[in-house]
Design a protein around this nucleic acid. Structure first.
Lengths: 196, 196
DNA sequence: ACAGCCATGTAACTTGTTACATGATTTT
DNA sequence: AAAATCATGTAACAAGTTACATGGCTGT
């Protein structure tokens, strides 16, 4: 998912110009989706180049220096394609926490135990920030946002539980054999593909 | 976190050349971290350009067309910096599932209910794949991998529960007011910053 | 008059992706 | 001899980030 898809989704409702899309995106999706204005225009350029949007010249009230874009048929098809493609969570398998822990087990400048401790401290702080944010939001006007925050909190809880698990099994984790110059293909058997 | 950090982490143990790092990364971190070979070399070029690694010419057994890199002092400092920086989960607030749901509530080509149904079907399939993968892994030799897979499964479960919640509150969700040409700043109050 | 928002854009850079080209060595 | 693997690289592109430049319009 990219900003491109969001723009297409927003433009389905009504035509808009770049700056407007910036504001819409923030109003609808919240702070995490505040982007640099430059990105809006380069994204729109690519969309226009690919024939997914067209600038409308039908300007009743002359609006200077403003380019209002609308979806093309091709753009609507692209949007349908995006909706039809379910969201994959397989990308979560590239996880920075996992990487750090494994590399430190191999011998890093910081011990795994210390990483876990610091990480827990940090995630608890993020958790605090999230719960506060949720408390400030209006659970009626902003229900989607509140629900989403609760999901994010649930994921944080899962991470914290995972840190506990890892900590409790640190002795077992340290016993794993280091990989010895693994020429690809030899060594341990290839791990199963994880995809759908 | 980027491939750069992983390379630095691996090079701390011993010097290695590009192709070796590719294999090491896969052996240590698994399939999700299989990258295109080209990326390894461009990453190494940047690392060398930035003075974080240097090619070693101390080749006893002449190895033709092979450049072995080792960490510099600066590289070790950079690595320590990466370890010292705790992993933030705030990036999860850019969530494709959330985006799709919210945009479809605003009026998309697919109804929210349908998105939820399709998404659940898909996540269940991913869940099946993950549990199978975990079953195939050796819980002694590959303990870190198994633990990590269990964490991924827990996250999937959280997503599935979230889908259920959203589905059960669809009537409430549909009642939210559409944003009307929100000139940035007006409209609903800015959401609280979520950071640490 | 001046600050601040509205609005559009360019430039430089980082990371990542796919595809391709080129050889050497090793295995079968 | 052929195939596979080892090993290094280039080119083109997509997406994102930050910083900067440029004006118009509006409220005080």
């Amino acid at each position: 998912m990219t900003v491109k898809d969001i723009f297409l989704g927003l433009l389905l409702n009504r035509p808009a110009h770049g700056y407007e899309l910036l504001g819409l995106m923030e109003a609808v999706l919240g702070d995490p989706w505040v982007i640099n204005s430059g990105q809006a225009y380069s994204t729109l350029s690519r969309l226009e180049r690919d024939g997914l949007v067209v600038p409308t010249t039908s300007v009743k009230s002359y609006e200077p220096g403003r380019t209002v874009y609308k979806l093309t048929k091709k753009g609507r098809a692209e949007l349908r394609g995006w909706y039809a493609r379910p969201v994959s969570r397989a990308d979560r398998l590239r996880d920075e926490l996992h990487v750090k822990l494994v590399l430190s087990l191999l011998g890093g400048p910081v011990s795994p135990a210390e990483i876990i401790r610091e990480q827990r401290r940090y995630l608890l702080a993020e958790m605090h920030g999230l719960t506060r944010t949720r408390g400030l939001a209006d659970p009626i006007d902003d229900l989607p946002w509140v629900l989403f925050l609760e999901n994010a909190i649930a994921h944080l809880e899962a991470d914290l539980r995972w840190l506990d698990t890892c900590e409790s099994r640190l002795d077992d984790l340290k016993r794993i054999p280091h990989p010895r110059r693994p020429s690809r293909g030899r060594g341990r058997p290839p791990r199963q593909d994880v995809a759908e």
